[in-house]
């Protein structure tokens, strides 16, 4: 028994495996297909011709995102939907997507946002975090913040100003969206925050899964805590919450984030019967874009 314990102690101190990489459901690809993507999507806009737009207004981009830990630069894939000629005057939505696949999967969502308030009234920018799609590197918590910061820097270079910028985080995207308002890394700071089905914290996800109050450190080094970060966000905040989210239960995730917000203005839209990925389709696409528009112009 003593031998077993000794071996155990050595193994414990030598251990270096973590579950962090399993937290990300990223997929590497060789090319983006956008409207021609044949993989699974939560919904598509084929039946909504009004949501289609001129591809002259769609720009595929490659950004450089610097890793502050190893000083490497990663090429990050991005897309901007809008007119470069008017970007300095336009209001831009920076869309931080969720934890699945790559931008092709989230393309219908970005297109929908490009139709808020009318076709191409607002610019929309979306990136693939490192390790997703064509973006180099592997996903990491710090990488999320650095990659979204790279997008902010690109927008700043294009002349976008803080008052014309809104950041939108869906699910995993709620982490960089909230963190970069609470602790800005760029002088370009979005003036509004929209979160769709946010998660509360990495530790709470651990505890949801285990059903026990296990420390998050047992499984992951990821320290994302949207519930804490939102406390220092002062910008107007809109929560879009699916009422029947089976993946991130509203009572322990979105509702908690909403309660912790202490800023100047907040509004919540609870969509009954909607699951984690079906808020738009359950609510109705036009109800969704109308609500977003009202918040943006408020």
């Amino acid at each position: 028994m003593r031998t077993i314990l000794l071996i155990s102690i050595v193994l414990l101190l030598q251990s270096c495996l973590r579950l962090d990489s399993n937290m990300y459901n990223n997929q590497k690809i060789t090319a983006y297909h956008w409207d021609d993507y044949q993989g699974h999507v939560d919904f598509n806009l084929d039946t909504v011709p009004a949501c289609n737009f001129s591809f002259a207004l769609m720009h595929e981009l490659t950004l450089l995102s610097k890793d502050t830990v190893d000083n490497k630069e990663y090429k990050i894939s991005a897309v901007y939907i809008g007119d470069y000629a008017t970007i300095q005057q336009d209001t831009v939505i920076l869309y931080c997507h969720g934890n699945r696949d790559h931008m092709d999967f989230y393309w219908p969502r970005a297109k929908l946002l490009a139709n808020v308030g009318g076709k191409n009234r607002f610019g929309v920018m979306m990136i693939d975090y490192r390790g997703f799609g064509l973006s180099e590197g592997d996903p990491s918590e710090e990488g999320l913040y650095e990659d979204v910061t790279a997008a902010l820097e690109w927008l700043k270079a294009k002349g976008v100003i803080s008052n014309h910028l809104v950041i939108y985080g869906f699910s995993l995207g709620s982490a960089p969206a909230t963190k970069l308002l609470a602790q800005p890394r760029s002088t370009l700071i979005p003036s509004k925050l929209i979160l769709e089905n946010p998660f509360s914290s990495a530790e709470l996800m651990v505890q949801d899964a285990a059903q026990l109050a296990l420390p998050g450190s047992f499984f992951t080094n990821v320290k994302v805590n949207v519930t804490e970060a939102i406390k220092t966000v002062q910008q107007p905040f809109m929560l879009l919450q699916s009422g029947d989210d089976k993946f991130l239960k509203p009572a322990s995730h979105g509702e908690v984030v909403y309660k912790n917000y202490q800023g100047s203005y907040s509004e919540k839209h609870l969509v009954p019967n909607a699951d984690h990925s079906s808020l738009q389709t359950t609510w109705g696409l036009f109800n969704y874009i109308k609500a977003v528009e009202v918040f943006l112009v408020k």
């Binding site: 399993n22 996800m205 899964a209 026990l212």
Partner: peptide
Amino acid sequence: IFYCFAFLVLLLASC
């Protein structure tokens, strides 16, 4: 094969 983080937690906690 894709293991979700949450599922692995469940496994390790009660295996």
